[in-house]
Design a protein around this nucleic acid. Structure first.
Length: 830
DNA sequence: GCAAGGTC
């Protein structure tokens, strides 16, 4: 039997299809797909299936001095046990194995991991094939001439693993221990995350240190034959053309001269055409950047791309490559789109061009092809709006890469008005070229009429604009990812995750990201004692070392030993400053949680966490001062810059994904609740008959509102209400529950919430169906069908007899139901 | 529980 191993299941399936001429079948083994035809088997890994770590005796942070990790043994163990077991079982029956992992350094290492697992079982020959895209020709060529694993290249990857683990773990533990942050809120440091954080912190420092300068700009409208255009004043600054006037007197002088000008004489008309080349094919960074300008975060863009890839609509989304493979046939791919409503006309138009020659970017790598649509097209209804928008972007980017350049006509007009120079730069799109199929990049025109040299133009609307220089802008997520790519930080697969990690660790907040006080303190501490780990040079040097290992000029041991010695030296310095570093980190952690003065003591109010994990506002003077304020129960609190004028407390935002909201000043929220009267709207359905409890609309001190029993806390009956908007209690009453219908006024569109009991029941029913639809492969229509058979919630689904349901609900198999039951069970266990 | 790198 010949065993073929790929890096992921998707690749395994496609290689099986190609090599078997579509005759392969799939078996499940330990929950892993194994593709089978004749005496061949193909199995896909899931990236790395083994990981590096320290032995268990190092796992208690308190028991081990961080510095001891430097020379600790490093072990490898299976991280994906099912896959490793399957690979072992298959290896035991193989006469030959072929490693077909991705064609890049990490792929070589993953291949070596598989190699070692197979070697444990058998000594049959193990070959390596390399191809950069899974097309029939490339795959067949690669398998026709298999090669050997490149152990040096794999060792380069292993050196990276070891160095990253040692530096990351030792320094993370050191900082966390010194600041006494050992729970979920440990203080993390790493070769990639820390220099990335430093980029953000450095930019923030520039912004904070920035002192604006005043300058002036002057504008005037010029008119010929009732055609007007705006022109800007400029002057000769040592042979260079300058628009900004730095001196107020000079600006006013120019202003007066322009105001006195009766007309302006055209002194120069220059026309030139400019070619605007279509963009290069998408690699991951360029894709994230383009999606970013449509408003998608890096993380969101990648997760949508991942879905589109898994569904088969686009190629692999993690790639550095910006050059299409030779066997991509653009005509054929365009042909796939000609019958579609959304893209048909554009595709047909492109096919009519004389020559179709895709653009090429600067990066040509072996990992994967650039991101482009596959020939398999989704129906519009299969994708939600975001998925469709991203899909359309990828399709149109492909179109753009095979489209013609655009041509612009630039027209520069210079005129003299009373000794002042005025200029206007016009821009007209003569040939739209790729812009016709790729409407994302700016193609805005600027009209300047066709005047002649010597013409006299009327001057009007002279304007003197006082301006200030602006601080540098914060990095947006896509700009940050571009910077990371330039500096070699992270990889195509990890950069967006690194940014997400910085958010999760409390180092950055908001978008564009800003560093927290903690982030500044961590960067400062690292700069002082472990400069290497916040510098991009660490990665640059590691890359050079890895190249040396890959080429055989150095060994893994040389490189890791040198790195260990360097870290030892870092720890010598760190050791003496342990307390100083810890104090500084603790202070900055507190600063990030400080709201403002406590009304009952001389201390500050802070956001604190109770033993159950819920957040509240408490006094830093506890236990002497026991003042507290509640916070909303949902989400993670974040302190904003904005301050309450009345109480001097900073506002609080609650982060909870889609349900994120600004809570505002917690003192105001509490005061509002204290001042508001409960409004009774009916009897309590739970205890009204026996105890006489009433239902009332209540405003709580933590900012939330609800309909609840007036006998609370003896009766805990309650119904939710929206946080915002004025609630109107109407005269109409619900027949079933004898409660008034409610209307919520928030913005222009009032929401008829209706009877609060009916509303809550409908909400719960919707939740239940949403839970069902979340199960893989259970669409909305199937959920409706199941609902007809009274299976409306995950709990219902778990208790049914699959065979029975399969006979009553059409189009659903018993096996399928069993799979859903498993998923539902797993979700309940979460 | 630490990193960064794969992948879902």
């Amino acid at each position: 039997m010949e065993l073929i191993i790929t890096e992921k299941d998707n690749a395994a399936r496609r290689i099986a299809e190609i090599l078997s001429e579509d005759s392969a079948e799939v078996d499940r083994r330990n929950g892993v797909n194994v593709y089978r035809w004749g005496d061949k088997r193909v199995v896909g890994l899931s990236g790395h299936v083994v990981g590096v770590d320290f032995p268990p005796e190092y796992s208690d942070w308190r028991d081990v001095e961080p510095v001891e990790l430097i020379d600790a043994e490093i072990t490898k163990s299976a991280t994906k046990e099912n896959i490793v077991r399957t690979l072992r079982q298959l290896a035991g029956r193989a006469d030959e194995a072929v490693i077909a992992t991705d064609y890049d350094r990490e792929g070589e290492l993953i291949g070596k991991e598989a190699y070692e697992i197979i070697r444990d079982e058998t000594d049959v020959p193990i070959k390596r094939v390399r191809f950069s895209s899974i097309t029939e020709r490339e795959v067949k060529d690669a398998f026709a001439e298999p090669d050997d694993l490149d152990f040096d290249l794999a060792a380069a990857g292993e050196a990276r693993q070891i160095i990253d683990l040692i530096w990351g773990a030792a320094l993370t533990r050191f900082l966390s221990l010194s600041a006494r942050q050992l729970g979920d809120d440990f203080i993390s440091v790493g070769r990639v995350q820390s220099p990335t954080l430093k980029l953000i912190v450095d930019r923030e420092r520039e912004i904070e240190a920035f002192e604006p300068d005043d300058y002036w700009e002057l504008f005037a409208d010029l008119t010929e034959d009732s055609q007007s255009f705006e022109a800007q004043y400029f002057y000769d600054d040592d042979g260079k053309e300058a628009e900004r006037v730095w001196d107020e007197d000079a600006a006013e002088d120019a202003h007066e001269r322009l105001l006195a000008a009766k007309s302006a004489t055209v002194t120069e008309v220059r026309r030139r055409t400019r070619t605007d080349d279509p963009p290069a094919p998408f690699n991951t960074t360029a894709f994230i950047s383009a999606a970013g300008s449509l408003g998608y975060s890096a993380q969101r863009a990648m997760s949508i791309a991942e879905e589109l890839y898994t569904a088969g609509y686009i190629t692999y989304p993690r790639t550095d490559n910006t050059v299409y493979p030779e066997d991509l046939d653009p005509e054929e791919l365009l042909g796939a789109f000609t019958d579609t409503g959304a893209f048909g006309e554009d595709a047909a138009g492109l096919l009519n061009l004389d020559e179709i020659e895709p653009t090429r970017g600067d990066e040509e790598t072996t990992d994967h092809p650039p991101i482009h649509p596959t020939g398999e097209l989704p129906n519009r209804s299969e994708l939600d709006d975001d998925e469709w928008e991203v899909y359309e972007l990828i399709v149109r980017r492909f179109f753009a890469t095979v489209a013609e350049p655009a041509t612009w006509e630039h027209l520069r007009v210079v005129a003299d008005a009373n000794g002042c120079q005025l200029k206007a730069n016009g821009k007209r799109l003569v040939e739209p070229g790729y812009h016709a199929v790729y409407p994302y990049s700016s193609a805005s025109e600027n009209f300047v009429p066709d005047v002649e040299e010597g013409a006299e133009l009327a001057v009007s609307d002279v304007e003197l604009a006082a301006k200030q220089t602006q601080p540098p802008r914060r990095y947006g997520q896509s700009r940050l990812i571009e910077r990371m790519e330039d500096l070699g930080l992270g990889t195509k697969s990890t950069r967006h995750n690194t940014i997400e990690k910085l958010y999760d660790r409390g180092y950055i907040e908001q978008d564009p990201p800003r560093p927290t006080t903690l982030a500044k303190a961590v960067v400062e501490a690292a700069e002082e004692f472990a400069d290497h780990v916040v510098s991009e040079e660490m990665t640059a040097e590691l890359e050079a070392d890895m190249a040396a290992i890959a080429s055989g000029e150095a060994t893994l041991d040389d490189v890791t030993e040198e790195s260990r010695e360097m870290l030892e030296r870092v720890f010598e310095e760190l050791h003496e400053s342990r307390e100083e570093v810890g104090d500084h980190l603790q202070q900055s952690l507190k600063a990030d949680r400080t709201l403002g003065p406590c009304p009952e003591s001389d201390h500050d109010l802070l956001i604190r966490q109770s033993r159950h994990g819920s957040h509240f506002v408490g006094c830093d003077g506890f236990p002497d001062c026991r003042y507290t304020l509640p916070l909303p129960s949902t989400g993670q609190p974040q302190v904003l810059d904005e301050e309450c004028e009345e109480h001097g407390l900073r506002h609080v935002k609650m982060l909870a994904g889609r349900d994120t909201f600004v809570h505002g000043c917690p003192q105001c929220a509490a005061d509002e609740a204290d001042e508001s009267e409960d409004e009774v709207i009916g009897d309590c359905p739970e205890c009204g008959a026996d105890e006489g409890g009433d239902l009332a609309i209540k405003q709580l001190r933590n900012g939330s509102r609800l309909v609840g029993c007036t006998r609370y806390p003896d009766c805990e009956y309650s119904l939710p209400l929206p946080r915002r908007g004025e609630i109107e209690v109407t005269d109409e009453r619900c027949d079933e529950h004898d409660l008034p219908e409610l209307i919520v006024h928030n913005g222009d569109d009032p929401w008829e919430l209706g009877c609060p009991i009916c509303n809550y029941q409908e909400y719960q029913a919707r939740q239940a169906v949403d839970d069902l639809v979340d199960l893989d492969g259970l669409g909305e229509r199937t959920a409706e069908k199941l609902a007809e058979a009274d299976i409306e919630t995950l709990a219902d689904l778990e208790t049914v007899d699959p065979d029975e349901v399969a006979t009553t609900v059409q189009g659903v198999s018993a096996d399928q139901i069993r799979e859903w039951q498993q998923q539902a069970g797993a979700e309940a266990a979460d």
